[in-house]
Nucleic acid binder design. Structure first.
Length: 554
DNA sequence: GTGTGGACTTAGAAACTTAGGC
DNA sequence: GCCTAAGTTTCTAAGTCCACAC
């Protein structure tokens, strides 16, 4: 059968409904050399797969199996009897159609792009705001998630499953009693309208993959989120005043006769020292196999009596949140080692675990922490250690590399930020173009060195003839200065980039670092805040930018 | 005490926009 | 002015933690 209509404007976004699909026509997929005209529902799901054909996901067994199972559910009886093997389906044509659509979007004229931008702004203006306590606030994710294929991270057992289209009938609206209830699309009704002012969400629905509730909430720049953010950092600051006592206590507890107490002490030691996450219990087989401190298993740890010149080394190797690998070798204080590795089994990982976290529940750990300080939980240690590390590093690096040069100041800031990102294990995949970029940068630096040398020579020459041409000397001086700045910028960029190859700075900046530290540093160093925070980051941290003086101490 | 659902924060990837080099 | 890479925003998955039921 042949491909029917495709005008290149096939809508695939959240607003797509089956009605839209009808409007834009049908297309086909190829089965063993034969074209098959698909029903609307099956075709839509086929397109989801075709769109992802360039992605590694579509080569994964689990993804393909899950996908095919769910695709078949959307097929008619006739289609099901015809299409029995995903490997025999050729999505090439659908894929090409999708690519063509992407390309078409790229080559739009300036005017056409502007029209799209305006239309988008209109949508944001209409749906992107709400009124909270008489203040107009920006909503963060005001669009319902469109249907598509579930992209679980790592070896997620549900990757490839079909995320269903959300209809108004799935959505709960939460607004005040006095508010105008949003009107559902014609012919539809909301699942429920409630008036719960004890929660912050505006709308919610339950997704079909993990039966998790999804929420529509306010943007980070809202008063509500800003206040919560401030509270978070105030709790972390409070920990600063009692962290020494807490450390003394868990060091004492390492010697406790009670197994529970020792386990808790070891867990706290690692949460504090290594910024590990708590590690809640997870449903086996429902998600990727990832762990945190309290859910570590025997196979994640190797004990070394001696390693690389250090005594008592614990080697961690496990997948953490988002299936990001945590690999670290750390020498531990002797008493931890001693109590974790009894004489009878000097290197047994199981003995370590029996003393570490095997029976320790995060709930119990947090209950204990709340007795040590109001509001203290395991995650506060991450925020605290991230922020205190930034502050210490900024002091140290800024003093060590005293410079009035902005690129160098920013390099110091990024290095301090990097120390935190390393502590928190915030990784990224190195950009594909990384090696090429670095290879290109060196000749650029060499060229700039040559230009600088030449500019210096010319300046010398001009000085010789100074009496005749004073303006020329000034010009040459300016040229030398400019060359120096450009060279420095390139050199700093090379260093920064190399050090940042596999490190993601944004996550800690956004979630773990008290913004007041950065604001105070900017004021002290006379660096514009725009140099370290983007527009949306400045909006999020407006509270800190407004209130922080240069003498702020975390 | 234990399990579960709900509400919220934290996170990396993808998409989109802007800046800078040629 | 065009192209590409960097910077920024958007998207939504994946954690934490608490309250409540048993």
């Amino acid at each position: 059968m042949e491909l029917l209509v495709n005008d290149g404007t096939f809508p695939i976004m959240a607003s797509t409904t089956l009605k839209n699909l009808k409007k834009y026509g049908l297309c086909s997929t190829v089965l063993q050399g034969k074209k098959v005209k698909l029903s609307l529902a099956a075709e839509e799901v086929a397109l989801f797969f075709a769109q992802m054909l360039d992605h590694e996901y579509t080569t994964k067994k689990v993804f393909r199996e899950n996908y095919f199972k769910d695709w078949r559910k959307k097929m008619t009886d006739e289609e099901r009897s015809l299409i029995k093997n995903l490997d025999k389906c050729d999505f090439g044509e659908l894929h090409a159609m999708h690519k063509a659509k992407v390309e078409a979007k790229k080559v739009l004229t300036k005017e056409e792009k502007l029209v799209l931008k305006e239309a988008n702004k209109k949508v944001v203006d209409e749906y992107g705001y709400c009124l909270l306590d008489h203040h107009k606030e920006r909503i963060d994710n005001f669009k319902i998630e469109p249907p598509g294929l579930f992209r679980g991270r790592g070896e997620h057992p549900k990757q490839g499953m079909l995320k269903m289209r959300i209809q108004p009938e799935h959505v709960i609206i939460n607004c005040s009693k006095e508010a105008c209830i949003p009107v559902p699309p014609t012919g539809h009704r909301w699942k429920e309208v409630r008036h719960d002012n004890a929660v912050t969400w505006l709308a919610s629905w339950t997704e079909n993959i993990q039966s998790a509730i999804k929420y529509i909430m306010l943007n980070a720049n809202s008063k509500l989120k800003g206040e919560k953010d401030w509270e978070k950092y105030e709790i972390a600051r409070k920990l600063k005043s009692c962290v020494d006592d807490i450390r003394n206590q868990y060091n004492q507890d390492l010697k406790s006769k009670k197994m529970d107490t020792r386990q808790r002490a070891v867990a706290l030691y690692f949460i504090d020292k290594l910024a590990l996450r708590a590690g809640n219990k997870k449903e086996e087989g429902e998600t990727a196999d990832t762990v945190g401190c309290c859910s570590l298993r025997v196979e994640h740890i190797t004990l070394h009596e001696k390693l690389e010149g250090n005594k008592c080394v614990v080697e961690f190797d496990f997948l953490g949140k988002d299936s990001i690998r945590y690999y670290n070798k750390i020498p531990v204080i002797k008493k931890v080692k001693k109590q974790r590795a009894p004489k009878a089994l000097p290197h047994s990982p199981s003995s370590l675990l029996s003393c570490l976290c095997l029976h320790l529940k995060t709930g119990l750990l947090n209950k204990h922490l709340s007795t040590l300080m109001a509001g203290l939980t395991a995650k506060v240690f991450r925020t605290y250690n991230a922020s205190i590390t930034l502050q210490q590093q900024l002091k140290e690096l800024t003093n060590r590399y005293q410079s009035d040069n902005e690129p160098e100041k920013l390099l110091s800031y990024n290095r301090a930020n990097r120390a935190v990102a390393i502590l928190c294990n915030h990784q990224r995949v190195p950009p594909k173009t990384f090696d090429q970029f670095m290879a290109n940068l060196q000749p650029k630096i060499d060229a700039r060195k040559e230009t600088l040398a030449l500019a210096k020579t010319e300046l010398k020459q001009a000085k010789k003839e100074a009496k005749k041409q004073q303006t020329l000397v000034e010009q040459k001086k300016a040229a030398v200065k400019r060359c120096k700045e450009q060279l420095l910028k390139s050199e700093v960029q090379a260093t920064d980039r190399e050090e940042n190859k596999q490190i993601a700075l944004g996550t800690s900046k956004l979630n773990s670092l008290d913004p007041r530290i950065s604001v105070a540093w900017c004021k002290n160093m006379e660096v514009p805040i725009e140099k370290i925070y983007s527009k949306s980051q400045r909006d999020k941290f407006a509270w800190a930018i407004d209130m922080t003086e240069e003498d702020f101490e975390f």
